[in-house]
């Protein structure tokens, strides 16, 4: 069972070229921009006065794009996987494994880059700091290891959510889910009591002061949401 899940995960990775290319383009452009900024700063010897207060999105955070794109593309592999003789259960488990590995890798990269590349860039260029989810969501305050798990749990929930939503798009309940999500955001936001429940929800999965509650909430929610795929896959025609 695990071997087949691993095969599904590997096959998904091998067929993520578009997601990888798009992410690589964004990363490449960001890197080139950083290098040019560094060269300009060094060349004029202005001690970066011209770019005082400058901020940029953390380099590592661009890797999150890979998660978003993968979760959008991987559901489309279902039929091809079945055409190779795969089973629905293998696809279900294999995709979960693919997201688990990918989100863990991206979280690790984000934490490492935050502590190395971003620190360096802040010291020499972005003296206004970097826009980093680890910082802005307060995860890094709990230390690098806990922050890694917090980010992993959140990204896994995010991947599970996008994957499930995309998987359901060819059925009526997918469209109902889209409408519900839009309705909840647009109706709950302007009405104060309802807004409070939205705030409570986001506090639970993102801004929770207790890292363990946040990690547990994200993982439980991810499992619940991803489990819906069992029902979706069971009804999916090949």
């Amino acid at each position: 069972m695990f071997n087949k899940s691993l095969v599904v995960a590997k096959t998904n990775y091998r067929n993520m070229k578009l997601a990888c290319i798009l992410t690589a383009i964004v990363l490449g452009v960001t890197l080139i921009q950083d290098i040019i900024m560094l060269m300009l700063g060094s060349a004029n010897g202005s001690s970066y006065r011209g770019i005082e207060g400058n901020m940029n999105v953390s380099f590592g955070n661009y890797f999150i794009l890979l998660i978003i794109l993968s979760a959008a593309f991987i559901p489309g592999n279902f039929r091809k996987m079945m055409n190779l003789g795969g089973k629905r259960a293998d696809f279900f488990n294999g995709c979960a494994l693919a997201y688990a590995i990918m989100t863990a890798a991206v979280s690790l990269v984000c934490v490492v880059l935050y502590l190395t590349y971003d620190k360096f860039m802040v010291s020499v260029l972005y003296n206004g700091g970097t826009l980093d989810v680890l910082y802005w969501f307060g995860w890094i305050d709990n230390g690098a290891v806990i922050a890694f798990f917090q980010m992993f749990a959140f990204l896994f929930l995010f991947a599970a959510f996008v994957h499930t939503l995309i998987s359901a798009q060819d059925k009526w309940y997918g469209w109902v889910a889209d409408i519900l999500i839009i309705a909840v955001i647009s109706v709950f936001t302007p009405i104060a009591p309802l807004r409070a429940s939205l705030v409570w929800f986001f506090n639970l999965i993102i801004f929770n002061s207790n890292a363990f509650v946040q990690i547990a909430a994200c993982l439980i929610l991810a499992v619940v949401i991803y489990s819906l795929n069992k029902l979706i896959l069971a009804r999916k025609a090949i």
Binding site: T11, R14, N77, R79, K80, N83, L84
Partner: peptide, 21 residues
């Protein structure tokens, strides 16, 4: 299905993947 779409992988890789699945 004979007309089914497959991953754009090498023939040998497709066979290996099918064998593993």
């Amino acid at each position: 299905d004979s007309g089914s779409v497959q991953f754009n992988m090498r023939v040998s890789d497709l066979i290996d993947t099918a064998a593993a699945l």
